[in-house]
Amino acid sequence: MPVTVFFAAGPANWEEYRDPLNTAFAEAGLDVAMSDRADNPLSVDYIVFAPGGIIEDFGPYVNCKAVLNLWAGVERLVTNPTLTQPLARMVDWGLTEGMVEYVVGHVLRHHLGMDAHIHGQDGVWRNSVLPPLARERPVAMLGLGELGQASARALTALNFPVMGWSRSPKTIDSIECHSEEAGLKHVLSRAEIAVLLLPLTDETRDLINAERLAMMPKGAVIINPGRGPLIDDNALLAALDAGQIGHATLDVFRTEPLPADHPFWAHPKVTVTPHIAADTRPSSSSQVIAENIRRGEADEPFLHLVDRSRGY
């Protein structure tokens, strides 16, 4: 009998993912019956899901072997008390490459001071200040998961001295790794550019607050393509107004889309990008979904399982 897959990620995603998923299932040698409806929850073997999808109660799907998330973030799922099935987050090469390109692009933009020339087309010859070499510009990578490690390695390849911080200790070649509160203070106190790629948990919410912003070198830059609530918005605005933080490039926010009257839009030291740093791409993510279903049917361990106790 075919494997039954319930695509519960919503109508818009269904139109975008139906064909790539069916192609990936065929390439993986899987016999799959997939639908965006589940008339009989007991028959469902796997659920493909995204936050905001069409179900909230996972209880009826008692025979479901795994819930496979299309997003990297799972903070809106791990707190659902009806979700008792194994939960896999999305880690795919397309999403990772997109994030690396965003992070490297904006780090280089701020490192080179490109904004002064892009926005300063006023006849003034601004050649009096040269940026340091990359090796002289310390960068902090807060978060050393798949995306953080990939971005850190790309920056290291450009000779940036990268310091990493994560909740749990890690050892990564060519990256100075830290953990715990003392490690965070050490990293922030040296970082002229800080990139936020942490998961959102109770421990990381408002991690970048007034106290920690004050630890950074005066004029430092914040780049946040991770999760909006990692930053205390009011504290960041105050630090920008005081000149403690030189610029903030933000891709994620507490409320999305970012309300038109939010102070970030009009602030001269803030760049708003509309949650575009790393989108899940149907072609590559469908291959990850297919591989996890293949693994489940072969009684092999699932990829990228979420640790409920840690929230990611």
Rank of each mutant, 00 (worst) to 15 (best):
T4R: 14
V5S: 04
A9P: 06
A12L: 14
D19Q: 15
D19N: 11
A24E: 00
D31N: 14
S35Q: 09
L42P: 00
V44E: 03
V44F: 06
Y46M: 07
Y46A: 04
V48Y: 02
P51I: 14
I55N: 03
I55T: 05
E56Y: 00
W71G: 00
A72I: 10
T79Q: 13
N80Y: 11
L83M: 13
T84N: 04
Q85V: 08
P86C: 11
P86N: 06
V91C: 03
W93H: 13
W93I: 14
L95A: 04
G98L: 01
V100R: 14
V103L: 11
V104Q: 06
G105S: 10
R109H: 15
L112V: 00
G113N: 08
D115W: 10
D115L: 13
H117P: 01
H117R: 05
G120K: 09
R126W: 06
S128R: 15
P132D: 06
E136I: 06
P138H: 11
M141N: 03
S151A: 15
L155H: 05
T156Y: 01
A157K: 12
P161Q: 08
S179Y: 15
V187Y: 09
L188C: 09
L188F: 06
R190Y: 07
I193Y: 02
L197K: 02
L197Y: 03
P199Y: 05
D206F: 09
M215W: 15
M216H: 10
K218W: 00
P225M: 13
G226I: 12
G228T: 11
L237R: 07
T249E: 07
T255D: 05
E256D: 04
P259W: 09
A260L: 12
F264G: 01
H267Y: 06
T273V: 08
I276N: 01
A290R: 02
N292K: 05
R294T: 10
R294D: 05
E297S: 01
E300T: 03
E300I: 08
P301A: 12
D307C: 10
